[in-house]
Write a protein that binds this DNA or RNA. Structure first.
Lengths: 158, 158
DNA sequence: TATTGTTATACTCTATAACTATA
DNA sequence: TATAGTTATAGAGTATAACAATA
């Protein structure tokens, strides 16, 4: 029986473990990609641009959970580093269509390798089958909670 | 086969899902306990004081991942609300021994109920057995990653 | 001389809201 | 008149470091 004060659910329940492990995993990931001079939101944008190129800044800002005004200097830096580019939209000249550059695509490839190493480290305690089961359960929970696959605005800093 | 750009691990791996679900669960929990006028770090301190009363501010600040200077106004507010109290330590008069008041213990009881409702909501997609399996796996992962049970400094804001 | 708690300051981060150009 | 992007400003939140009391 769990006698830790605060109640078993509070400290040992799935919700708490998810929050604890999630913040741990996010911090570790941030440390890893710092070696590529990227922050988690920056990595997120690169992935989003690879998945669906040509979207407007406003849409992307919404997905990243940041106000449009904050997105501007955020995109400025990546553009200055030659990783993304703003293309003029001929149909609506107010909006910019954002795209990954070749250099950006190259960095994204490195990012994927880092991501796989990260996955291995986080799940080191699990067997191959257990890992598969865990992913399947987490996916169901995420879906039931209405979370969009592949994007989360929980990123912090950057 | 998973063809989403960014790679299957990046967006669908366990590490990503943990981060996504963890931040989701943490945000939802923060919303819930806002009804008790508590932030996640405040709730964390109440639980810590119930688990091990009489510790010094420095120790508690370390566990919460905040500098001692920030802990001062943080504890001030809870003391002002009559939820915790600073007792003089007769052995070392530099340090304060922090304790939960009766009122603080009462609020902690409410907090537990909120925590259980939170747990049910987050795991609504899982059967009883699946829930048990998930918790067991997450505990193993957390232990292998060297995380301290019951405490995590990933809290934000408050 | 080192450590606990505290205070003060300076800085980063962020959102709000004003502004422009297109529609 | 409404919207995309941008800029400016003001506010919150935070850490760093100086300080006082005690060891």
């Amino acid at each position: 029986m769990d006698r830790r004060p605060g109640g078993p659910q509070a400290q040992g329940g799935a919700a708490f473990l998810l929050a604890q492990l999630g913040s741990h995993a996010a911090r570790l990931f941030a440390d890893r990609i710092a070696g590529l001079d990227l922050t988690p939101p920056q990595a997120g944008l690169l992935r989003m641009l690879a998945a669906s190129p040509g979207r407007s800044q406003r849409e992307l800002a919404d997905d990243l959970g940041m106000p449009p005004s904050r997105f501007v200097p955020f995109a400025d830096e990546l553009e200055g580093r030659g990783l993304i580019e703003r293309r003029k939209n001929p149909n609506d000249r107010r909006s910019h269509a954002l795209h990954l550059t070749e250099k950006g695509a190259g960095l994204l490839a490195e990012l994927r390798e880092v991501g796989m190493a990260h996955e291995r480290d986080i799940c080191a305690a699990l067997s191959f089958d257990e890992h598969r089961e865990l992913v399947a359960m987490l996916r169901r929970v995420a879906e039931q909670q209405g979370l969009t696959p592949g994007v989360h605005p929980g990123y912090r800093s950057g």
